[in-house]
């Protein structure tokens, strides 16, 4: 249901948009594998396989044509975003449950592509973090600091044969955000953890690669500047205020920008065309508040990261935001009534 200038329609077909998003994610994935080891390839593959399995199942149950929906790439984007949001080298069934919630519950129970109220990948993530908090803390350590960095073969074994082979302690570590929380609660200075987290090699490279992928999406006009800018501004502003109020307990804004899934969220997750706000002013409100909530959850909550929950909360507010931020059409007054 596109509105009038129909010329750009072909270039911005669902398939075209999704393929560009996937292409923009590829550099990030390559750098991810370089920083955190080859486990990401396994989780990406497992998520992709289950994504297509559940998508086919749902389409068949709903008597929908398979080919156009399977080839539009949207389910692949969901799978990759979920894989990048989860720890790698978890047992395979965790990825399966995540994709089940993402594809069946969040997408198809709401009516399929274009109808979902919530971002599917984030619903999958939320279901997993609520259900299996233990597994969701098994973040792989960066290769440069891990006492034992699993090879690809070992990663495959961990995913499919269970945890027996290598102890999780050997290759996982607490995320900087968890370390920060524990450290501050024990009475330590936030700055010590922040300083240590910046010494990990390659982490900034990953953030910069996500940023470059995001800029690619901006350049190809898949997304507009509103959401990433407002989200990052919301994070910097909220974190900045907290940092100024109590620098001993809170990390500085830069830490929030380079930690967790801030960059992935700003350019790839919040910008989901279906569940995000659609109006220019609405996008600013939606993403700005998401940034605000993200920092609040990170600073005062118990979950490893706040991006998923803030995205879901703001998804809920999108119909409301959209209704109040309709742009004024020339010749009409602000309320949509005809000017006299």
């Amino acid at each position: 249901m596109a509105s009038s200038p129909h010329i750009a329609l072909q270039r911005n077909s669902v398939r075209g948009v999704m393929l560009k998003v996937l292409a923009a994610l590829v550099p990030g994935i390559v750098v991810y594998a370089w920083v955190f080891g080859p486990g990401i390839w396994v989780s990406l593959l497992v998520c992709t396989a289950f994504a297509y399995f559940f998508e086919t199942l749902a389409l068949a149950m709903r008597n929908q044509p398979l080919k156009p929906f399977l080839s539009d790439g949207s389910v692949l984007v969901t799978a990759w975003l979920l894989a990048l949001s989860l720890p790698t080298m978890l047992p395979w069934w965790i990825y399966a449950v995540g994709m089940l919630f993402a594809v069946l519950v969040a997408k198809h129970l709401y009516g399929g592509l274009g109808q979902n109220l919530f971002n599917p990948a984030m619903v999958g993530y939320a279901a997993l973090i609520v259900s299996f908090p233990m597994y969701m803390n098994l973040w792989p350590a960066p290769v440069s600091v891990a006492s034992h960095a699993p090879t690809l073969q070992e990663a495959i074994d961990l995913v499919f044969a269970g945890q027996g082979a290598i102890s999780p302690d050997a290759y996982t570590t607490a995320t900087p955000m968890d370390t920060l929380r524990a450290h501050v609660r024990a009475g330590g200075e936030a700055a010590e953890v922040v300083r240590a987290s910046f010494q990990v090699i390659g982490k900034e490279a990953l953030v910069v690669t996500y940023l470059l992928g995001g800029l690619l999406l901006l350049a190809t006009r898949v997304i507009t500047w509103h959401i990433p800018v407002a989200f990052l501004a919301g994070i910097v502003a909220t974190a900045g205020v907290l940092y100024l109020l109590d620098p001993a307990r809170h990390a500085d804004p830069l830490f929030h920008l380079v930690t967790g899934s801030t960059m992935l969220g700003a350019f790839f997750i919040l910008t989901d065309p279906v569940s995000a706000s659609g109006t220019p002013r609405g996008k600013l409100i939606y993403a700005g508040l998401a940034g605000f909530i993200t920092v609040l959850i990170r600073s005062y909550g118990n979950y490893p990261d706040g991006v998923a929950f803030s995205v879901l909360l703001m998804n809920m507010a999108v119909p409301f935001i959209d209704a109040y931020t309709q742009p004024r059409v020339f010749g009409q007054t602000r309320g949509g009534r005809r000017g006299s």
């Binding site: 449950v97 519950v105 279901a127 609520v130 259900s131 299996f132 908090p133």
Partner: peptide, 18 residues
């Protein structure tokens, strides 16, 4: 069984009833 907390928590009630 590893346990699936979501089913026990309130969201599980809403999804199950649905």
């Amino acid at each position: 069984y590893q346990g699936f907390l979501l089913a026990i928590l309130p969201p599980g009630a809403f999804i199950g009833l649905g």
